[in-house]
């Protein structure tokens, strides 16, 4: 087998059979190569910038290009970050912040959103896929419409409801209530699309599989738990990841409802950049930014295949 044909993924055949090549395979092979190059080029600036950010978090200055060779690297920034000391260079007031608390807050919001989104979408997705009820198609269309609204456009109304609802909340419960409110509001933004995604996954399961379990002696609930749920697990995983990232990254809702009494990574970085740019030691901020990015990077690298599956509409049964 020659190197060239191996590179192209082709098996050598006698020249007489040239006409019998699997034409489509070759075209597709070339097409995906071209696509990969184009996407790679388009993504290059992004990848470079993020690499700079990550590198800066270990450096003694903000890196901007060739200076990556001059900088000295250490874990100092990360140590400072976890000590909550943002501006050590200024020598003046240290604004110490409890970064662990902030990370915990971010986790609480992100996990809360995940739980709510997954719970609602799995149940609603099943209902939309498997049950006939009045107004089903209308409701499905309405969900798309809801999804089309950007969260920012809704914020005033959501805020109005928030302010109105505060009247009923005892003073002691204020903080937990605001967290709950944020989680629910943020989850609500994700839910329409998630329901559609989940419905798609349930749709892929043939009715006969469900019936078969019924005939085998299962109740409808057992069928749901033992057959349907395991089969849509990839869907649930994808959904959970999207929801977690949405909750983790959210700035607007967290800022409106939780700032400043409960801070998350997003509002924390915003605060540092917004108020203390002169005094802040930027490499530490870079470390905070990297921390903020970690879940995204981890999830996308770890679950590429799963996400592709989810986006192309589900699992093969």
């Amino acid at each position: 087998m020659s190197l060239v044909s191996r590179l192209r993924g082709l098996r050598p055949r006698p020249p007489a059979q040239r006409g019998a090549w699997d034409v489509e395979t070759i075209r597709r092979g070339r097409l995906s190569l071209v696509l990969a190059i184009v996407l790679g080029l388009a993504g290059l600036p992004l990848i470079l910038l993020y690499s700079m950010l990550v590198l800066s978090s270990f450096a003694d200055r903000m890196l901007s290009g060739p200076d990556i060779f001059e900088a000295r690297y250490s874990l100092d920034n990360w140590r400072l970050l976890f000590e909550g000391r943002l501006a050590p260079a200024s020598g003046q007031t240290y604004t110490t912040r409890d970064i662990l608390m902030i990370i915990a807050n971010t986790f609480i919001v992100a996990l809360g959103v995940t739980v709510v989104v997954v719970f609602v979408s799995v149940l609603a997705g099943y209902a939309f896929s498997r049950m006939r009820f009045w107004g089903r198609t209308r409701l499905m269309e309405f969900l798309i419409l809801l999804h089309a609204f950007p969260g920012v456009a809704l914020i005033i109304a959501v805020y109005a409801v928030y302010v109105w609802s505060l009247r009923f909340v005892p003073r002691d419960w204020f903080v937990p209530y605001t967290v709950l409110y944020t989680v629910l509001a943020r989850a609500a933004l994700e839910i329409p699309m998630s329901i559609w995604l989940m419905k798609g996954f349930f749709d892929k399961i043939p009715w006969e599989v469900e019936w078969s379990a019924l005939v085998d002696g299962a109740s409808r609930f057992t069928v749901w738990r033992k057959i349907m749920l395991p089969l849509v697990r990839p869907g649930i995983a994808a959904l959970a990841i999207f929801a977690f990232l949405a909750g983790w990254e959210d700035l607007i809702y967290v800022h409106v409802f939780l700032y400043p009494h409960v801070k998350t990574l997003a509002t924390y970085i915003e605060e540092v950049l917004g108020t203390g740019t002169e005094t802040a030691y930027l490499p530490v901020v870079a470390a905070a930014g990297t921390l903020y990015l970690i879940p995204t990077i981890v999830f996308f690298v770890a679950t590429q295949r799963l996400l592709l599956q989810a986006l192309s509409g589900g699992v093969k049964a």
Partner: peptide, 30 residues
């Protein structure tokens, strides 16, 4: 009566096996 109370065995035209279970578990399921 629901299917579970009829004690019937049904082989579907498209088999309808449980994709996430092994053959053994499929057969053992009922």
């Amino acid at each position: 009566l629901p299917p579970k109370e009829r004690n019937v065995g049904l082989v579907f035209q498209n088999y309808a096996l449980y994709p996430h279970m092994t053959v053994y578990d499929n057969i053992a399921f009922p």
